[in-house]
Design a protein around this nucleic acid. Structure first.
Lengths: 183, 183
DNA sequence: ATCAAATGAGACAGCCACGTCTCAAACCGC
DNA sequence: GCGGTTTGAGACGTGGCTGTCTCATTTGAT
């Protein structure tokens, strides 16, 4: 039974998010294989990063599609969206890192499409009166991205219970930290 | 007039946040000097990173002290805090990166103290009834950190006007994206 | 203009990570 | 048990980066 390339790729993402220039040896270890085997699965470091980005983009795209951001009440749509993205927070963080540097034009395009889907949802919410227009949709999108990355990190470092991640992120994003008076 | 070491360090932070393993040549370029000159200012890459971290910690500490998180109404204190931290968002992001990997024990300690100051403020706010207790103080602290880093990035990439950064971050953190009914 | 200090350019050696490859050991299916 | 496949360990050559250094040029003060 040959080693599962996709499983190996997935096993590298946490290491890469924390240390983008982690040696191949370390990536291999994270996957429980040797460096030689890793090189048998992917021809080069560049190829590994590219393949992982493709995988992450596919997962992110699927998550967003499942959430159906263009459907229904915008606040509910954001809730669905966050619920779908939190489980892939690490992959999202990886994509953020890759696309903050200088990516492959084709993958930049795909990432831009995901970005637009999120911006679109926040815009739709603003137009419907559900979201505050004084907070730009692009900002809300970037904030969601940042919170996803930060939440993934917090869970990974034991600062946040995984089971709480979705709820607290959604609540902070939608309603903020301030306590409302209970009328 | 010798090249200002501190000015050079400050000039490297953006490059390092975006690419932690950026070559010394690139860091030197960011500061408008040659690699040789950079090596005259700091003995090694490690020394540069250490000195920048010390500088960043000092700035962050000063920002937090100016904000006086332990004084006054908690929501107002958070507003003061964000207003002081946003201008050093890049340095904060750099510190996050350094302390997410494996830092110097002494600097880890200093960073932990800053972390505690923020957690303390959110806790104080929860105890006073100003902040929601269902969002852990640690989470709120991590969220603020993430939003700072993300906002710094957005400004740097032209996705957010620098003059808006403080306001939108504060508003999102405190009151969220959802529009309140105007009664 | 002069001179000392600062700087940039570039050469060099060493280190680390990478990609490549070999071979023995381990694994797995029959 | 046998044989084919997979894997890990390790050696090797190469390139990029680092730190070190020299020397010519530039800079800045007098």
């Amino acid at each position: 039974m040959a080693t599962d390339r996709v499983r190996v790729l997935r096993a590298t993402v946490r290491v890469l998010v924390r240390q983008p220039n982690a040696p191949m040896d370390e990536l291999a270890k994270a996957a429980g294989i040797s460096r030689a085997t890793l090189h048998r699965l992917v021809p080069s470091r560049n190829a590994l990063v590219k393949q992982l980005a493709e995988l992450a983009l596919a997962d992110a795209r699927a998550a967003i599609e499942r959430a159906r951001p263009e459907q229904g009440e915008p606040v509910a749509a954001v809730r669905r969206l966050v619920a779908e993205l939190v489980p892939i927070a690490d992959l999202w963080a990886f994509l953020m890192g890759e696309n903050q540097i200088a990516g492959d034009p084709e993958m930049d395009q795909l990432w831009a499409e995901l970005d637009l889907a999120l911006i679109g949802l926040f815009r739709r919410g603003q137009e419907s009166g559900a979201f505050r227009v004084e907070l730009p949709a692009e900002f809300l999108t970037d904030a969601l991205s940042s919170l996803l990355a930060g939440t993934g990190w917090a869970v990974q470092h034991g600062r946040l219970a995984a089971k709480d991640a979705n709820r607290v992120l959604t609540e902070l994003l939608l309603n903020g930290a301030v306590r409302r008076n209970q009328s």
